[in-house]
Design a protein around this nucleic acid. Structure first.
Lengths: 383, 383
DNA sequence: TTATTAATGAAGGATGTTTTTATTTGTGCA
DNA sequence: TGCACAAATAAAAACATCCTTCATTAATAA
C-alpha cells in the first residue's frame, strides 16, 4: 500500500471514496449520519453525495417518516448500477449467475453437460448457459462490468488452465481468452475451490473468519485457502493442491466411495457418495466402514493443510455437504490427533452454489477495487 | 486498507509520509529529484522536508559538487534517529543485535548457554546478552524504539510461547511479558523460522521473491512462510508446523544425522550434522546414505508445504546451510517428483545470523508502520 | 561571462471547516 | 383542524490550509 500524495483534488477523490464506502457498508443513510460515519463535515458530504448522485453511484430513497422533526433524505448505493457474471464450470453442470453490484443474484441459468464432453462441446454449452443467464436478467453482454469463471485445475494468473485432472480435455485451455471474445470487460478465471472458499467467507460458514481452509470433497478432492481474508493462490496458482502428494490420503479417498461394494451395479460415480452416506446413515456396517476409511484419508490431507496454514476454521463442501451428519464426526476424530490445536470443522451450507457464488464475489471484488482506486477517475456505472 | 478522508491537514500528513518514503527508498536526494519522486511540486516538498528536518527524521548532507549549475541540497533519512533490538533465543546461543532505523547493525552480543539450561537461567543469560549489546552500541534500554525476539515453538499473538519442543522449559512462558519489564517500547515475539524467512526476504536469497518457504534444518526442523511478502502466521501462530504430522518425514529426519553410526563416541548432537555432511563430502558411502535418507525425509515435509502454498522459492537454512553442496542435490531429487511445478531450492547464506536479522527486520517493520500511519501524529525520533 | 541548475517568494485556486441564518417538513398536542 | 416544536435541509459567509504555477534570484562549472 503505497499511497501517493497529491493536491486537494486528490483529497476530494479520497473523500469521495470514503463517502461511497460509508454508504455501502452502513446501508441507507441520511446526510447527518453519513457525515459522522465518514468523519467529514456535513456541507462536504452534501457536495460529495451530489457528485455521486450525478455520477449514478448513489440513489435517493423515499425518506422515512415516524420520527420527530423533518425526515432526512436517504441515500443508498445504486446496486443496479452494474452487474457481474459468475460462472461455475463443473464436470456435470455449467452454472451462470448474474448479480448486481450489491451482490444480489438477479438471474441464473444452469446447463447439464456430459462429463465426457470435449473442449468444444463444453465451451458451446458454456456460451448457451451465459446467453440464458443474460436473457433471464434482461441484460446484454456489453452491460456486464466483470466476469469470473471457476474451473477445476491449476489456473495461471493469465487465466490459462495449466492442469486439470477432473477435466483432462481442459488442460492447456486459455479459458480467459475464450471468454474475453464474448465480453469487453475484465474476465477472471480462478480455481473452483478457491472461489468456494471466498463464498464461504462472504455468505457461508466463515462470516467472520479470515483464516480459512475450504475442502471440496466428493468425486474429486481439492482445497481453497484464505489467509487474512484473501485468497492464497501461490506463485503459480498451485496453492492447496495437497492431493498431489501420494503420502497423504487424498488421491485414494474417493475410491472408498466410488468403489463401494454395496452400490447397485451401474451407479454413476457422482451418485456414489450420496448412496454410501445414506447406507451409513441407516446403519449398514460396510458403509460405515467405507465412510470411516474415507474420513481418514480426507483427514490426512486436511491435516497437512491445517498444519501449514493454521486456519481457524475448516469448511467441508462439495458432494459431501449434504451428508455432514455422517461425515463430520469421523473427520474430526481422525483430524484432531494430527493437529497441534484442532480448528473448528463445519459443513458448507451453500451446497452446489458455492463456486458460482464465489465467482460472483471475485468479480465484485474486481469492480470494487476499481471503484475504490484513488489513482483512477471514478468509473461510470453501466446501467 | 480503509483510508479515512479528512481535510487538507490530512492531505499534508499523507504528503509528509510520501516524502519520507521517497527519501528512504531512493537514497539521498536533492529537492528537485525528491519532488519528482514524490509526484509533488517543488515548493511543497521543500516545506515538507523542512518539517521532517525539524522533527529529526531527515538530515542534510553536504552538497555534491562537480555538476553544472548550483549544487542541490541533499537530504537523507536520519537512520540514527532510532534503534531497534533483534534477539535470537537458540538452544545453545543467545544472540542480540542492535540496528539503526536504516537497518544497519551497529552492535551485537552473543552469549553461549547450555541447552539444558532452565527457564530462569536462560532468561538471566538473555538479560546479560541484551545488556552487552546495548553497552556495545552505547545505548540505554529507554532509547530503543522496538524489540523483537525469535524463539522456537508456537508463539501466540500476545507473545506467549504456547508450545516448544526444542526448549521444553520454555513452554507456557510469557516471553513478551518478561521482556516488557526491561523496555518501555513495543516488544514483539515471533517464531524463529518465521523471522528467518523475513531475513531471507530482506537480505538473503529471496530479494525479489514474495512467495517463500524457509526451512530450518538441523537438529530441529521447522519452517517459516511468506505470502505476498508477508509472514503467514495462522490463526493461532501455528503456521508451518508440518513437522507435527507423523505421516511425513520431518519427525524422523534429524535421527539420520544424530544417530549416524560413524560418529565419534560422545559427539554432541549439534555437531552431528556437520560431521555427517563432511564424511559424505569425502565419499563415505554410509554417510552418503544417511544424507540421502535425511534429504528424503526433509523433502516429504517440504513437499506438503510447497503443495499447500506454492512458493516460488524454498530456502534451506539452519545447521545445514554450510553443507549445501552435499545436501542440495538430494533434496531436489526427492522433492521435485512430489511437486506439480518444482520451486527453486536454494541454501541460505545468512548462516547463524538469519533469525536475529529477521528479528531486526520485524522490529523495523513495526517502527515503520507507525511512521507511515496517517492516523497518528508523526512520532519523534529517540536520539 | 554564460549556461545551467537550484532556491526563493508571491499570486492564485481548490478544498474543507465552522458558523450563521433561513427554510422545510412531519409529529404531537390542544 | 390548527399551532408549536423538533430535526433536518439549504445557502452563504468567513476563514484556514495546502498545493501549484510562474517569475525572480542565487550559486556553480565551463
Amino acid at each position: 500500500m503505497t499511497l501517493r500524495g497529491g493536491d486537494t483534488s486528490r483529497l476530494r477523490r479520497i473523500n469521495l471514496v470514503t463517502t461511497l464506502r460509508t454508504v455501502r457498508s452502513q446501508g441507507p443513510l441520511g446526510l447527518t449520519e453519513l457525515a459522522r460515519g465518514a468523519a467529514l463535515s456535513r456541507p462536504t458530504v452534501e457536495g460529495l453525495v451530489e457528485e455521486l448522485l450525478a455520477a449514478g453511484w448513489l440513489r435517493e430513497l423515499p425518506p422515512e417518516s415516524g420520527q420527530m422533526g423533518r425526515p432526512a433524505r436517504l441515500f443508498a448505493f445504486h446496486a443496479a448500477g452494474g452487474h457481474v457474471l459468475g460462472i461455475d464450470i463443473g464436470s456435470y453442470t455449467l452454472r451462470v449467475s448474474v448479480a448486481d453490484l450489491g451482490g444480489t443474484v438477479v438471474a441464473a441459468h444452469d446447463e447439464q453437460i456430459a462429463s465426457t464432453a470435449g473442449r468444444a462441446e463444453r465451451l458451446a454449452g458454456l456460451r448457451t448457459a451465459i446467453a440464458g443467464a443474460l436473457e433471464a436478467a434482461g441484460l446484454t453482454a456489453d452491460r456486464i462490468a466483470a466476469v469470473c469463471a471457476g474451473t477445476t485445475g491449476v489456473v495461471t494468473t493469465e487465466g490459462v488452465v495449466k492442469l486439470s485432472v477432473g477435466l483432462p480435455e481442459w488442460t492447456g485451455l486459455d479459458l480467459a481468452g475464450e471468454l474475453r471474445a464474448s465480453f469487453d470487460c475484465p474476465v477472471l478465471v480462478e480455481n473452483d475451490c478457491n472461489l468456494a472458499a471466498l463464498a464461504e467467507h462472504w455468505r457461508g460458514q466463515a462470516g467472520d473468519v479470515d483464516e480459512l481452509v475450504f475442502v471440496l470433497a466428493g468425486v474429486r478432492t481439492g482445497a481453497g485457502i484464505l489467509v487474512s481474508g484473501k485468497l492464497l493462490k501461490g506463485a503459480r496458482g498451485g496453492a492447496g493442491e495437497i492431493g498431489a502428494l501420494p503420502l497423504l490420503g487424498w488421491h485414494r479417498a474417493p475410491v472408498h466411495l466410488t468403489g463401494f461394494q454395496g452400490l447397485p451395479p451401474g451407479t454413476p460415480p457422482q451418485d456414489a457418495a450420496a448412496q454410501v452416506f445414506a447406507a451409513a446413515r441407516s446403519g449398514d456396517p460396510a458403509a460405515r466402514w467405507a465412510v470411516e476409511q474415507y474420513a481418514r484419508d480426507l483427514a490426512e490431507g486436511i491435516a497437512a493443510l491445517v498444519l501449514t496454514v493454521d486456519p481457524e476454521l475448516v469448511v467441508l463442501g462439495g458432494g459431501v455437504s449434504r451428508s455432514g451428519d455422517v461425515l463430520l464426526a469421523p473427520v474430526r476424530r481422525h483430524l484432531d490427533p494430527f493437529c497441534l490445536e484442532p480448528p473448528v470443522v463445519a459443513i458448507s451450507d451453500l451446497g452446489e452454489q458455492a463456486v458460482v457464488l464465489g465467482a460472483v464475489r471475485r468479480a465484485l471484488d474486481h469492480v470494487d477495487a476499481r471503484l475504490y482506486d484513488f489513482d483512477a477517475p471514478l468509473p461510470k456505472p453501466s446501467s
